[in-house]
Write a protein that binds this DNA or RNA. Structure first.
Lengths: 186, 186
DNA sequence: GTCTATACGAAGATAGAC
DNA sequence: GTCTATCTTCGTATAGAC
């Protein structure tokens, strides 16, 4: 048995990158093979059901990174505003300062939508609950907190799309900057 | 020469529908053929460069509909608030009350992005200018008007994504409802 | 765990008859 | 303008050697 060329985590990271640049259907096995440096057979060794398993792995890896680095900030010490600012900063990092796409967008439509939408829904609902919790903790009424959590998420998703089309990071950066205020004071 | 099975406008409309449901790369010629009822050769008769021309036509048709039905409301009689409300209502119609995707999202990434992003950018910039103009007309300072126009667009794009993932139209409907207020009074 | 080789269908696209 | 037939490339997926 030859030694692995890359640890599986690194393979998954590169696969995730391909999905984020090309979308699910645009991520062909050739591209995935080239960008991981693994032949098709090696990819099937790691991901027996092929692209479907790769999408699953990308989703899990992205979710884990966000939970560990961004969502964790919401439970860390500090004022609600400070925690939200750290959360936003980490999300900005995840999105490559607005240059990288979100799997919630890419995997929500077409063939990928059928495969992954229910998983994404669970993750999104959990995140919305977390964000609303921070707002409530800061004294925002539950209904308003839920609304603003939803607004925060929509603002980021929309900012990614608009920044991508306009070719400028400014809208994304502004939304990240404003996130704590928007959630806490509408 | 046999008579056309469908007028070209109707063909384009159906093609646009396929793109909006499956994305650019997910819209295969087979699907496009099936949903238009035209064989491949007929499609190539209308769109000599194949999918690329179909994407172009979809973009043009969508842009024309939006200009004629939604953006036109911004130049029609009535208060800024009333015009924005009519604009929002027409956009909601375009988006099938939140169930149908936006080409700015779908055509912004991957292969489609390379083909269509510059066209989309022009359209988006024009729309942002129009929206900001209405806000300025209502007394909003230029910088704030530009910011809020951007916010309005991002909110709609984000609402479409979140509504799609959550499987509920409520977030989209809320954003549509709030659009005039957000643009005019932050 | 990786490789080469290959199966096999679907992809986009074209030719020529009517 | 539509059809059938065809072409080539690329798609996902597998087999078997090392």
């Amino acid at each position: 048995m030859p030694a692995p060329l890359l640890p599986k985590d690194e393979v998954t990271a590169r696969i995730t990158g391909v999905f984020r640049r090309h979308g699910y259907e645009g991520a062909s096995l050739s591209r995935l093979s080239k960008e991981t440096g693994l032949g098709r057979s090696s990819l099937y060794h790691y991901f027996p059901r092929g692209k479907r398993d790769m999408g699953e792995a990308a989703l899990a890896a992205a979710g884990a990174w966000i939970d560990e680095h961004a969502v964790a900030q919401l439970d860390s010490p500090g004022s609600p505003h400070a925690r939200l600012a750290r959360y936003a900063a980490r999300m900005a990092e995840y999105y490559g300062d607005g240059r990288r796409a979100c799997l919630v967008d890419l995997f929500g439509i077409g063939e990928a939508g059928a495969l992954f939408r229910s998983q994404l829904r669970r993750r999104v609902k959990a995140l919305l609950g977390k964000l609303a919790g921070v707002a409530e903790e800061a004294g925002v009424a539950p209904a308003a907190a839920a609304r603003r959590a939803e607004d925060s998420l929509m603002a980021i998703q929309g900012a990614l799309i608009v920044s991508r089309i306009l070719g400028t990071r400014a809208p994304f950066r502004r939304i990240i900057q404003e996130l704590p205020e928007r959630l806490l004071h509408g």
